[in-house]
């Protein structure tokens, strides 16, 4: 895939899909200003899976919101395909844990939410496809309040994928799930990523999760967040989570953020 890109248009392949350029963010409230992000520069290439990790409250989600255009940065710019981001865009969809599903719409209604430009038959086809992909058959007419946390999470992922975005932004999407569901969801996300090759930016505080999923892990420092280190995860999928290389990479990251790997 990458080779074909190079062959078709060399300049574009050289430019990153997402480029965060000296981004800083300062929150001002009641006359007090708190720096949250400090001079973040980061490039993500097409089809790449990047995880942002860091201590809780460090500003990971703020960074993701700024990348997605939901927050305006104090300084610096975010470029996507060499175009400055000025606001949210349906080509790049956010997934907010399970909190983003609309409680007043059924499963079908939620998945169809972003498909208002399609014809009725196309829309129905698309909805049925994604209902099946995330395994919610039989729940098409159910409201989110009737679903479990894991089902709501899958629903929100399906709603995001249904509009066929180039990029997905996931903000601790599996944080609220139990460990078994979380494990299954990671597998599903990887499967979807491998078939559809979206560019994914994934925020998590779970280092194991990051090492299992990402091509690269971006480690942020405590607030104000700055990039501490970027780690390449050079293990091919499916990943053996008891292999020496996996443990080495994970422990390296744990050490980097100052956590001993013995309890």
């Amino acid at each position: 895939m990458a080779l074909r890109e190079v062959a078709l248009s060399p300049q574009r392949a050289l430019a990153a899909k997402l480029c965060v350029n000296h981004l800083s963010m300062v929150f001002t409230r009641d006359g007090k200003s708190t720096p949250v992000l400090q001079d973040i520069t980061l490039e993500v290439s097409e089809g790449e899976f990047v995880c942002l990790v860091g201590p809780s409250g460090c500003g990971k989600s703020t960074l993701l919101n700024a990348i997605g255009g939901l927050l305006a940065p104090t300084a610096g710019t975010v470029f996507i395909d060499n175009e400055a981001v000025r606001g949210p865009d349906p080509r790049r969809i956010f997934v907010f844990q399970e909190r983003g599903v609309f409680p007043w719409l059924t499963v079908e209604g939620n998945i169809a939410f972003g498909l208002f430009k399609l014809s009725r038959s196309e829309r129905e086809e698309r909805v049925a496809h994604y209902v099946k992909m995330v395994g919610l058959q039989g729940f098409e007419e159910a409201y989110p309040s009737e679903l479990s946390g894991g089902m709501k999470q899958r629903l929100e992922v399906a709603r995001a994928l249904a509009v066929n975005p180039d990029m997905l932004y996931l903000d601790e999407p599996f944080g609220a799930l139990d460990s078994i569901t979380r494990h299954i969801m990671r597998g599903e996300l990887l499967r979807i990523w491998e078939t559809e090759r979206k560019t994914i930016v994934f925020v998590t505080h779970d280092i194991d999760e990051a090492v299992q999923l990402a091509d690269r892990v971006v480690i942020l420092s405590a607030r104000p967040a700055a990039i501490q280190r970027i780690v390449n995860i050079d293990i091919s999928h499916p990943r053996d989570i008891s292999s020496p290389r996996y443990l080495e990479l994970r422990d390296g990251i744990l050490q980097q953020i100052g956590l001993a790997h013995k309890i």
């Binding site: 001002t28 009641d30 006359g31 305006a72």
Partner: peptide
Amino acid sequence: SLAEPKSW
């Protein structure tokens, strides 16, 4: 709105 209102 993205900008917080000023105190005045």
